[in-house]
Amino acid sequence: MWKGGRSPFNVEYGKLMMWYFLMSDAFTFGAFLIAYGTTRFATNGWPNPNEVFRSYPLGGNVHAPLIFVSLMTFILIISSVTMVLAVHEGHSMNRKGVAKYLVLTILGGLAFLSCQAWEWTHLHNEGAWWGRNPFPNSDGSISTTNFTNFFFTITGFHGFHVFSGVLINIIMLIMVLRGTFDRRGHYLMIEKAGLYWHFVDLVWVFVFTCFYLI
């Protein structure tokens, strides 16, 4: 029982609120993905993701399903790892270490965004966009535009989260380099940015599975 005088959850206010924000964000993404699942369950046919997502840059017309998206997945996992390491360095007040790992995290985020930009451009060139779906169902029958609508909406919303995550990390990097957190005496702000960044990785785990794998 909490008797007052100390923080009941043993975390600072900002971090607690970040958790609650992320929980609400999880419901937003969850609603998107469940809407996608419901539509898919309500439709007779669906395009085969291995026929749609089968290219990588400079690969030409090669049939290579899952290759490019697994690269994107690993980029995001590794950038999540460098973020944990930045938080870890923050615990020991190591300014240089935090800056180093933040730079790596930002680079990972930018790499992911570039991959996504390429994929969107490629799909757009194939004729796919909101309201346009050139890919037939796996049995060759006419598909609905729901497929592309959900794909671009959900990966777009996730990409926007990655983009804002990169911005947050850049702001964190500037604050680290200027010594703001050293003066403050703690690197708790990095932990909050880290929570957001891990959440972006977490959402990709679900998006990756729902769109590309199953």
Binding site: S7, N10, V11, E12, H91, G185, H186, Y187, L188, E191
Partner: peptide
Amino acid sequence: LESLAAEQ
């Protein structure tokens, strides 16, 4: 905040 930072 410092003690929170130290405890985590």
